[in-house]
């Protein structure tokens, strides 16, 4: 992340009505055409160069994480998705979190607050596998990596999706 992004992280609003219109037009995806950005620009009645400049700025600010294919893990055979949760020493968590986050089979890795006594896990790592045994094997690898810093862990598999909607931004609000 560049320094500009750091400075802007806690400021709002950093996007204006035109940015919001761009987000609303592209959050469900880009058109699969030879000239996707030109087509979006035309739909919004703006110049493609302005659209690209604004999307470039939003990318630099981290508002756009990345642009490309969002695979459906489940349909690609990765049907066992376990939320592995770890209790690690707070004073080493940044260093340990980075090591876990770099593992190829970990897609999301976050530090989150503890809620004692019910919840002592402060590191969350999403592990994807073709089946549960594969997830457990990968979790064991994380445990080995953490060594004595693994003060306890668990894997929470999703039993059921109760709701799943994408990001919905309202258009026209500044």
């Amino acid at each position: 992340m560049n320094m500009q992004a750091v400075r802007n992280m806690n400021q709002s609003p950093i996007i204006d009505a035109i940015d919001r219109a761009i987000i609303a037009a592209t959050q469900q995806g880009l058109p699969l055409t030879a000239t996707p950005y030109q087509d979006v620009a035309q739909q919004l009645g703006m110049d493609v160069k302005e659209l690209l400049a604004r999307m470039q700025r939003m990318t630099e600010l981290g508002i756009i994480r990345r642009t490309g294919i969002i695979p459906n893990h489940y349909k690609l055979g990765y049907t066992a998705n376990g939320m592995s949760v770890w209790h690690v020493p707070e004073d080493k968590i940044s260093q340990l979190g980075k090591a876990v986050g770099e593992l190829a089979f970990v897609s999301h890795c976050y530090r989150r607050p503890q809620h004692q006594p019910l919840w002592s896990y402060n590191l969350f790592a999403m592990v994807h596998g073709m089946h549960r045994d594969e997830v457990y094997e990968k979790v064991e690898k994380i445990s080995q990596l953490l060594g004595t810093n693994d003060l306890g862990h668990d894997v929470l598999f999703s039993k059921q999706i109760l709701k799943k909607t994408g990001l919905r931004i309202k258009q026209g609000k500044d």
């Binding site: 992004a5 802007n8 992280m9 400021q11 709002s12 609003p13 950093i14 996007i15 987000i23 592209t26 959050q27 469900q28 995806g29 880009l30 699969l32 055409t33 030879a34 999307m55 939003m58 990318t59 600010l61 981290g62 508002i63 756009i64 994480r65 990345r66 642009t67 490309g68 294919i69 969002i70 695979p71 459906n72 349909k75 690609l76 994408g166 990001l167 931004i169």
Partner: peptide, 28 residues
């Protein structure tokens, strides 16, 4: 590329093609 991505999306192997937005960075 366009045709294969379109087909994979139609078959659900790709959930979406385009930018992924980060809600927090928008001030939310």
């Amino acid at each position: 590329m366009i045709e294969r991505i379109r087909l994979m999306q139609a078959n659900g192997l790709i959930s979406r093609f385009g930018p992924i937005y980060n809600a927090e960075r928008m001030g939310g």
